[in-house]
Simulated scan of single mutants.
Amino acid sequence: MESFALPRDPLTGRPSLRQAEGSGSGRLIGNPRARELCPFCDSQIEQQVDRIAAAAGLDHWMAASVRNKWPVLTEDQGRHEVLLPCLRHAERLWDLTDGEVARFLAFWHRRLEACAAGERDLFPLMIMNQGEMAGCSQPHLHSQLIGLPAEPDSWGPRRKRVRARDCVICRGDGTTSPIITRQGEFTVWAPYHCRTGLIRIAPESHTSALSAEQLRELGPLVRRVARASTTVMGTLDCSLMLFAWFRLDRAAAHWHLELVPRKTAIATVELSTGFSISSIDASAYAAAVSRALTRG
């Protein structure tokens, strides 16, 4: 099947995605009736959304994937799903139990594999936004899986920097940057020049073989780090991004997660240059998040 070519800005050359019209009409962030009207809660989901897949529990759905009502790509262009960790109303990652977040990240893997295995050879992108500063319109915690027709321009250079022969995570970023914690096979660190409290999480040993079991094990750690880092930064909002490459020709790339507390908007100088502005001392920040993790 012929892939869809993303339109590009004629001046910058950057690709663009167009969201379906009416995307603002269902906005519930800040609405005092958000819990009552939430389209993702158990009382509403059967009537208001089109379920794609689910992980079943004993007496209820444990996690579900539904079609995005306002997708940035139509079905003939790519894929855009909303993944729900639970059907009860939870708004923060730390509102979930360790078991729920572990199952949810394992469910991520199931949907990522389904996206990558399709005949259109889509590039799967998994993100989670929490709160208004992260761009959410719905307060109910959710992730988004976007099956892009091409690898994002910014991911190519990143992929090359984390390949086996000269992986910057193995060579320095994950070993000489201030370490926040180590748990099992995973290292959590604050990279130098970290804008708004960026945190990276990756397997300590170089690996490209992202598995459901790894994500299941990682879930409770991500939950704890999200709560600790946002507490230190003085915000409740954050973004979580998974960088993993499912194509065989990219199999040497070291997979990793980035967690970003969201407190401030992107500055104009950052928009105009592509540069990031850092006002955080990474060592002091890593120490503060580590202490917050210890306090629980």
Rank of each mutant, 00 (worst) to 15 (best):
P152A: 02
F40I: 02
G147P: 02
L112V: 11
Q138W: 07
H140F: 05
R110V: 14
S65V: 14
N129K: 07
D121H: 09
M62K: 11
H109C: 04
H89E: 10
E132T: 04
H80E: 00
A64C: 11
S23C: 11
V101R: 11
W70P: 00
R110G: 13
S25G: 10
A90V: 15
M62V: 14
V49F: 03
G30V: 15
A90N: 02
R110F: 06
L141R: 00
D50E: 10
W94F: 10
C136H: 01
Q48A: 08
Q77C: 00
I127S: 02
C136R: 07
A134W: 06
R33F: 13
R51F: 04
R103Q: 15
A116T: 03
R88Y: 06
L93G: 07
F104R: 10
G30L: 15
M62D: 15
R120I: 06
P39V: 11
G22Q: 04
M133A: 15
Q77S: 00
A106L: 12
P149V: 02
D76M: 00
W61P: 07
G135C: 06
P32E: 04
L93E: 08
A63I: 13
L87F: 04
W61C: 12
R159N: 05
A34Y: 14
G135W: 05
P124R: 05
E21V: 04
E113Q: 09
H142Q: 03
T97Q: 09
E119K: 07
H89C: 09
L112C: 10
R88S: 12
H80F: 02
Q44H: 12
V101K: 05
A106K: 12
A56D: 11
K69L: 14
C136T: 04
P157I: 12
R159V: 10
D50Q: 04
Q138S: 06
H60S: 14
R79N: 02
H109Q: 11
P152V: 03
P139H: 02
C38V: 10
L96E: 13
E91V: 06
C41V: 13
R92L: 14
D98T: 03
D42Y: 00
P149R: 01
L122S: 10
L37A: 13
E113H: 05
Q130S: 10
E75S: 03
C136G: 03
R35P: 08
R51G: 01
A63Q: 11
W61S: 13
P139Q: 07
G131I: 09
E36L: 15
C38A: 12
Q48N: 07
S137A: 13
A34H: 15
L28R: 10
E151R: 09
G147D: 06
P32A: 09
H80V: 02
N129Q: 11
L145F: 03
R163A: 11
G30N: 15
P39C: 08
V49M: 11
M128H: 05
A63M: 12
L122P: 05
L37F: 14
L83K: 00
E91H: 02
R33G: 06
F107D: 07
